[in-house]
Design a protein around this nucleic acid. Sequence first.
DNA 1: GTCTATATATAGATAGAC
DNA 2: GTCTATCTATATATAGAC
Lengths: 189, 189
Amino acid sequence: MSQPPQIPQSAPKSRILEVALQLFSEHGVAGTSLQMIADTIGVTKAAVYHQFKTKDEIVIGSTWLIFEKLLATVERGSTAPTAKAAREVVVNDLIDLAVESRGLASFLQRDPIMLRYFEEHEPFRNILASLAQFLLGGDTRQKSRVAAALIITGIGSSVMHPIVSDISDQALRKHLRLLVQNVIDGLDG
Amino acid sequence: MSQPPQIPQSAPKSRILEVALQLFSEHGVAGTSLQMIADTIGVTKAAVYHQFKTKDEIVIGSTWLIFEKLLATVERGSTAPTAKAAREVVVNDLIDLAVESRGLASFLQRDPIMLRYFEEHEPFRNILASLAQFLLGGDTRQKSRVAAALIITGIGSSVMHPIVSDISDQALRKHLRLLVQNVIDGLDG
DNA sequence: GTCTATATATAGATAGAC
DNA sequence: GTCTATCTATATATAGAC
């Protein structure tokens, strides 16, 4: 397992990670070959292998493009004055991230290879655990944990559902915030 | 594109579809080879190819194992006395199906290859559209459609989140029903 | 219905020239 | 940093014997 890549990357490295993230989200990790990545960029496979020793490194590196943003969210949550404020930061950031990429980010939750990385790869696992912690705010009741699971997975997946494809980013954000608030309010209200 | 398989299947055919569905849900369609399917059953690849001409047929056939159940839900929804009753039938069936398989069913929503089938393959598309219709009950407002997307995708994905893995099927069903009801009530209340 | 054997293509990955 | 060429493994798929 390689470490999270440092930033800023070299230009060719960054280009590979960008293209890989896009292709992974469209075809899945297993459905994306290094040849596809190389073809999209317009170079040969060997040029890609010069930048990354294995496909694994590309998977982790491109995933890190998303997790950098999630890590920033965790840090913003950590400095929030109250547990409730931290939860709002996390919810709003997750919604913004999901809506702005409309499924590009949510492939993370869907891909079987990624799901395995999240369990085995500590930096990823820690960030996801922190997000869940902020969402729960110390509330470990079963109903609250089910609600957290519904919110975390639902936000990422719902934005790419065809039934909402005609809704503007702004409106989608607004509706998701209200719906998530309803779920949270329903826990105790 | 092949047609949905007839039932009952021959025993070897059924066995292949069962095993394939399980492997697809664990590794994704692209991450599952016919060799893996053959090895799990204990036969050779050629024996598998004797039952199905292509991997595509196996993908569609195994997916149909789930969609048979969704089709039954659609039929139960169609005979419900009111729109509200139909919505409850659909919600409860989706929750039951998701909980009883804990992610085996939800791979359908996650796999990029499956997402493409849903758009291109009419029987699948029709069933999914019907489920969404019953959930919406004629309400086409943006906020309602976002809620429907959140519910449909959230149910399938949340049950496989590690944060709920220790919760019993019975409790998970109960909490999901209440949470979904909260979302629906929040639309107009 | 299952087997061995094979055809063909492509996967991940490397060597070495420029 | 990119190329051509190649290695090895494995993918989907088929032919034909039992």
